[in-house]
Design a protein around this nucleic acid. Structure first.
Lengths: 230, 230
DNA sequence: TAAACATTGTGCGGAAACATACATACTCGA
DNA sequence: TCGAGTATGTATGTTTCCGCACAATGTTTA
């Protein structure tokens, strides 16, 4: 088990929580959770990556935030005392996750435990991500946004090569598939990435970082601050 | 004192918290809090409205969420265990607020109090607002967005007439001042609003609601659900 | 192996919003 | 009452991204 939230638990809490966990596999492109529906489980990825999509009602969705093994999916609403999930969760990179029943989770995060404290800080980290993305989607051109999401995906997958079609990207970045084609072509020409039928690779990471909007570094910084606090 | 969060407190917590509060006036267009800076106070508006702005570094800001007497400003980061405020808070409609020192606030929201529970639910409500706005800024045209923000301002001011220049609006909706002029002109021609040199009035509320994107009703619904839970 | 499907590439007209520049109108204080 | 400052209105050309149509290429399946 390599989820960072779970790994950071003190021994006594870990021993109490561990029996509540079950390992599952995350299948590429599968939907784990839908907005409005009650969340049956809370997920703690060990590997892979999940994307949280906002505004999915009318099929015009975009990534609000992404979660890798540093975080949790499906638990924010429960942690904050709400009933319904606010987003759709889709597996963007395959891997495995530990999951916990919603009721068990509520029991564990209600009191003043270390677990609860970490989760609250995680919630803040998510809020920062979403806030930054709001301004990003409004003001930053597609090329910079695309570079940012590729970097953030790579960070969480902990590899520079991952499965990722342009169609999938377009749904998430909130532009047409053709715009992704054009923009990815530009990044490819610059030698920053390579790709072929769903296999995306970051070829020049420093270059791609330079091509991304500064939202990348802002979110990265907050994320690091969060990780260091554990 | 008519802040709804504070009013909903049970007697024992109210009596403990009340002495920590101090009433202040909120002056139109004043900045209460800046991102990055440590928050000295937490504010609970009694009247008026505050806007939280995301992405203010390069002067291209937009409203992430708004807070009236149903909520709180400046406390999210403290509640969630973070150090820095993620947004700028600007007074968008004058009024008064109760404020509490950050340290006192941390003391009160740390344990499993009713206060803490309400604040967490409030945080969730904010998250829903921001998520909806993310998709809204990306996909919805200026006219619908403008209608939405006017409605949300009216709701929180609890009046159909308020002070609001086009320049101020443009900074917050994230478009040029000229775009606001054009769009407000359309809404005026349709008889939905009237305005004159900084005085904005909602003339036809049902009509304006019909002209707004559905983000308005989605956020309204979540807000009502939050209020009813107190 | 051939057909069906999925993925990527390209071109063209159009809409929305931008940048810039300037004009008009209202308000308030000297 | 006159002028400075603030607020609003308007026009022109440009940019970015969209919508649509279709072509080309790689992959899977019958």
């Amino acid at each position: 088990m390599s989820n960072l939230l779970l790994s950071a638990l003190p021994a006594n809490e870990y021993e109490r929580i561990f029996p509540l966990l079950e390992e599952i596999t995350l299948k590429y492109n599968s939907t784990i959770m839908d907005p409005g529906g009650s969340t049956g489980y809370v997920y703690f990825p060990n590997s892979g990556i999940m994307s949280m999509l906002a505004g999915v009602e009318d099929d015009s969705s975009l990534i609000a935030w992404v979660v890798g093994r540093e975080g949790m999916a499906g638990g924010l609403c429960l942690l904050l005392g709400a009933k319904e999930a606010p987003v759709r969760a889709v597996v963007q990179g395959k891997g495995t996750a530990m999951r916990m029943k919603a009721e068990d989770f509520k029991g564990e995060c209600g009191n003043g435990s270390v677990f609860a404290g970490m989760l609250q800080h995680f919630a803040y980290s998510i809020l920062v991500q979403v806030l930054q993305s709001t301004a990003c989607y409004r003001f930053h051109p597609v090329e910079k946004r695309l570079a940012r999401w590729l970097l953030m995906t790579g960070d969480r997958m902990e590899t520079n090569q991952f499965q990722m079609t342009q169609k999938f990207l377009s749904n998430m970045v909130g532009v047409r598939r053709e715009s992704v084609t054009n923009t990815a072509g530009i990044l490819k020409e610059k030698g920053l990435i390579t790709y072929q039928r769903g296999q995306m690779e970051i070829a020049d990471r420093p270059g791609l970082e330079a091509a991304a909007c500064k939202c990348y570094s802002i979110i990265r910084k907050e994320e690091m601050s969060f990780l260091n606090s554990m």
